[in-house]
Design a protein around this nucleic acid. Structure first.
Length: 342
DNA sequence: GGATCCTTCTTCTTCTTC
């Protein structure tokens, strides 16, 4: 045992950054209780007096030392912190098995598709897309609800990322960086809007913006599959569930009517799973449109298009009605959580 | 005209080797 510990200390002195890394306090200390090297030091001093190594659970501490020496901060996740914690302190007193998300159902379930909506036989066959302005109401918005009910795990990774970025860029540098990202997203949206609007309605100053030309070429192959644009940047509200949002675009994608969300991204997002809460956002908009009397149609599909700055082909993630229903249930749970808290 | 709102983004395990 002594040998193992000495080896451990040697290792620490060999790798100068290691000790600091071990003591680095994570952001969400409450949610992810942290192991502390003091445990080991404390044991050591005790052991000096008692001198009874035989009583020590050799296997347990061998594992502990191994876990301490083999983990790096970059590999730290809520799971690994839990694991280390478990190794040190044993199972938590009040341990409940995690509830499976798919078995959890919202208390107040409302269908995604509105069974009572009457669709006119002859749709208002107007050439230009709908654009309803936001009303001033007390209703919470989709993004606000999603932001305020983010999972502890997502919050942990986001906060960690933010801290690292600030360390690298400084507070002002990081603010500048975020501002730029937002601006690109906004410019990209504006450019798409003028592409979809009939020529006479589009803004005259259609100057080729260098900042977003990459995103636009990234999305070219998807644009070919888009038609019959029915709404652009239009406000939607769910009349029974009482939330609102601003829908990017409602149009047909390969013949199917979709709520479309255009995203700009620095990292590739080749799968829907990479888009975090975006599918919930889309499902929320679909439900809202279907329960909003301003719209004389219903939508049952979604599309998330992830565009890239360097112009490489965007990833279109199509959400069929079944997938939309699954995310609709997840959204209802988040909405419920928000409403319970507010 | 100023303040507020909705969005706009950001996360995701690693490596021991030719």
């Amino acid at each position: 045992m002594l040998l193992v510990r000495m080896k451990f200390l040697q290792l620490l002195s060999r790798k100068p950054g290691k000790l600091e890394m071990l003591f680095q306090i994570p952001v969400c200390q409450k949610q992810f209780p942290y192991m502390c090297l003091a445990t080991s030091a404390c044991l050591y001093s005790k052991k000096k007096k008692v001198n009874s190594y035989d009583q020590v659970d050799q296997e347990k501490y061998k594992n502990l030392v191994y876990s301490v020496t083999s983990y790096k901060t970059s590999a730290q996740t809520p799971e690994t912190i839990f694991e280390e914690d478990h190794l040190l302190y044993g199972p938590p007193a009040k341990h409940r098995p995690p509830v499976k998300a798919e078995t959890k159902m919202p208390k107040n379930w409302v269908p995604l598709i509105n069974p009572n909506k009457r669709i006119p036989l002859l749709n208002s066959n107007s050439n230009f897309p709908m654009k309803i302005a936001l009303q001033k109401t007390k209703m919470p918005s989709v993004t606000r609800i999603l932001q305020q009910t983010i999972s502890p795990q997502q919050a942990f990774y986001l906060e960690r990322w933010k801290e690292r970025m600030i360390q690298e860029l400084g507070k002002d540098g990081f603010a500048e960086y975020t501002k730029n990202l937002f601006l690109q997203g906004e410019l990209f949206h504006a450019a798409l809007e003028s592409i979809f609007l009939p020529e006479d309605m589009a803004t005259k100053e259609q100057r080729e913006d260098v900042a977003i030309s990459g995103y636009l070429s990234s999305v070219q192959h998807v644009l070919k599959d888009i038609g019959e644009v029915k709404a652009l940047e239009s406000a939607v509200q769910h009349e029974t569930l009482q939330y609102l949002g601003l829908v990017d675009c409602v149009a047909k994608y390969r013949g199917q009517l979709c709520v479309i969300d255009w995203k700009t991204s620095e990292k590739p997002k080749p799968s829907l799973k990479n888009t975090f809460d975006n599918p919930l956002q889309v499902a929320a908009y679909i439900g809202a449109i279907n329960h909003d009397a301003n719209y004389d149609f219903q939508v049952s599909c979604g599309l998330i298009v992830v565009a890239y700055k360097n112009g490489s082909p965007a990833h279109p993630h199509f959400m069929d009605p079944d997938l939309c229903s699954q995310y609709w249930n997840k959204w209802l749970l988040r909405l419920e959580e928000y409403m319970d808290r507010n």
